[in-house]
């Protein structure tokens, strides 16, 4: 009974998709993904070097220089490349510092969701039975609520603020991870190599974290990058509603909220933070899709 690949094409895919280097190679051929990496890389560099790149501190107020347009419009000055906001702060500086907040928030949200989701997902998938039922019904309840509404409820309970917002958004993202990890674990735990480890007396912890976990990492990495962008978006939304970062923190969503009153008179004031959010989220999505395609040989040419 040959267990060899069912079709020949499959056989050659196995040859091609076997190594880690091949994944990188396939990734590099995807132009969108490379663009995504470029955007993410730029964003990270900007957030690390914000104090050196920004012309002014983000909360420095220039009296009398309110709502100046970008320098290439009538009335703009070269001192403020992208203009100033309603309190006379340099918009470019605030956007640069805002990158710091957004990247940090995205990172925290996906880290939290990753750790908690993986833990519960592994336990649910590995043990099955009653534990599985309890965990999965809880995630069902979490998923039954509109995500932004749930985040608002959590923030309303904990009080507004950056960290509470991060916590709220992370809770919303956890069920996706639990479901993904559980499904992959259930597929993996009946494979012969796990049974083989069982015959040497491997403990449950060893089976879950040393044997199964590395093998379900590929879909998890994809989910994590997508959660990164989702998290940024949700935090911006909470900020816009006044429940996330509080002024004067230079957070893009909060800036958007401040700018909405000036939408007609100074549209760039709205457009700039909006564009930043759009670009970063697009970058992470392109990156995530690229990784998924690279890992999945079926989607390859």
């Amino acid at each position: 009974m040959l267990v060899n690949p069912k079709s020949v094409a499959n056989h050659y895919h196995r040859l091609r998709a076997s190594g880690g280097l091949d994944v990188v190679f396939a990734f590099a051929q995807n132009k969108g993904a490379v663009l995504g990496v470029g955007i993410i890389f730029f964003c990270i560099v900007v957030s690390i070097f914000a104090p050196w790149m920004a012309p002014y501190p983000p909360d420095q107020i220039f009296v009398g220089k309110y709502t100046l347009p970008p320098m290439w419009f009538d009335g703009g000055v070269s001192q403020f490349i992208l203009g100033t906001d309603d309190l006379g702060r340099c918009l470019l500086s605030r956007l640069i510092y805002g990158a710091r907040v957004s990247v940090g928030v995205g990172f925290l949200v996906s880290l939290y969701a990753f750790v908690v989701g993986t833990l519960f997902g592994l336990v649910a998938g590995y043990f099955g039975g009653t534990i599985d039922q309890v965990i999965m019904r809880c995630t069902d309840i979490l998923m039954a609520m509109p995500s932004i509404l749930l985040a608002i409820v959590v923030v309303a309970v904990l009080g507004p603020g950056m960290f509470n917002a991060v916590f709220a958004v992370a809770i919303v993202k956890v069920p996706n991870f639990i479901r993904l990890v559980r499904a992959s674990t259930m597929a993996e735990k009946n494979k012969e190599y796990i049974i083989a480890s069982g015959t040497f007396g491997a403990s449950h912890l060893r089976q879950m974290f040393i044997n199964i976990f590395p093998n379900i990492l590929a879909p998890l990495v994809v989910q994590t990058t997508l959660t990164f962008s989702d998290g940024i978006l949700d935090i911006a939304a909470l900020g816009f509603l006044g429940l996330g970062a509080q002024p004067p923190t230079p957070e893009w969503g909060t800036m958007l909220a401040d700018a909405k009153n000036y939408f007609l008179s100074s549209p760039w004031f709205v457009i700039m933070p909006g564009l930043c959010i759009l670009l970063v989220v697009l970058g992470f999505n392109l990156f995530g899709d690229g990784i998924r395609d690279a890992f999945d040989p079926r989607l390859k040419k």
Binding site: Y12, L15, D22, F25, A26
Partner: peptide
């Protein structure tokens, strides 16, 4: 022949 990432593979 198959085109693979490692080069041309003459299968037959």
């Amino acid at each position: 022949q198959f085109d693979t990432l490692r080069g041309k593979l003459p299968a037959v």
